[in-house]
């Protein structure tokens, strides 16, 4: 409760500063709208359905891209951890491509797929997959071999060894790999939505983009606020339960 109060005071303070800045009249209200006008825009957008529609379109793309990226990245990461040769090849490739900012995939995606959902998906998957590979690979290398040895003496092997020992032992790094992938997927999708303007769906990135086109600063800031909120919410809903579980069991904050 104390923490909640402290956080509330902090954010209310920020809003007040913002409001004071807008009211001072030093900046044009077109370029520096007050929190009220941003709130009003968000309320209107919520009522006429554009906001929910944009959130829905964006989340759908994110979920599909992220799932595909994680499903490719996790096994490849485990594979890379299993042999030195794969580490030197696949691991090096992942490391190299991970340093490439995901917005750099946009031109290639546009030429390959045109203005389609496919281009969008491609950018998100490319943004996700490499960081998931790296996090999973790194984590799998740090599982203490003693767990597998102890389990094998108790008669565990094959599928049982993988599902009952290797999988739970790798939970901390799987979660951190998934979390890393999530952060990258989110960034890639926003880049893709801002640059790939397509008619099959109007997402939050596009809302932001058209806010700029229309010089509507309240829309720009409103869309940014929603993007931040969704990022925070995803962290709380998707990853916090796992991290709490691991903190309880492992006794450390590994996630």
């Amino acid at each position: 409760m104390r923490r909640f109060i402290a956080a509330s005071i902090f954010f209310l303070g920020l809003l007040t500063l913002w409001q004071a800045g807008a009211e001072s009249g030093r900046w044009s209200p077109v370029l520096f709208p007050s929190p009220w006008s941003v709130g009003a825009y968000l309320w209107d957008a919520l009522l006429d359905g554009t906001l929910l529609e944009a959130i829905w379109v964006t989340l759908k793309r994110l979920l599909v891209g992220y799932t595909v990226g994680a499903m490719i990245g996790l096994p490849l990461g485990l594979l890379a951890s299993s042999s030195q040769t794969l580490e030197d090849t696949l691991g090096a490739l992942a490391l190299g491509l991970q340093t490439l900012p995901s917005v750099c995939w946009v031109p290639l995606a546009l030429l390959w797929f045109g203005q389609t959902e496919g281009a969008m998906l491609f950018v998100v998957v490319m943004g996700t997959v490499w960081s998931v590979i790296i996090a999973t690979d790194h984590g799998a290398r740090t599982i203490p071999p003693i767990y597998a040895r102890a389990a094998r003496t108790m008669g565990s092997r094959g599928l049982h060894l993988w599902t009952m020992v290797m999988l739970p032992a790798s939970l901390p790094f799987l979660v951190s790999g998934m979390k890393q992938g999530w952060a990258f997927a989110w960034r890639s999708l926003m880049a893709a939505e801002i640059f790939v303007t397509i008619l099959t769906g109007f997402g939050l990135g596009q809302l932001l983009h058209y806010g700029r086109e229309l010089n509507a600063m309240d829309q720009v800031i409103g869309a940014m606020a929603v993007i931040v909120l969704i990022g925070l919410l995803a962290d709380r809903v998707l990853f916090s339960p796992w991290e709490r579980f691991m903190h309880r069991r492992w006794g450390t904050n590994i996630g």
Binding site: A150, G155, A169
Partner: peptide
């Protein structure tokens, strides 16, 4: 191969932290 007729207690901590 290892078998549960011969079980081992290790020096290093070998308990499974997820259980």
């Amino acid at each position: 191969e290892p078998g549960r007729q011969r079980l081992m207690v290790f020096q290093e901590p070998s308990l499974f932290p997820w259980l």
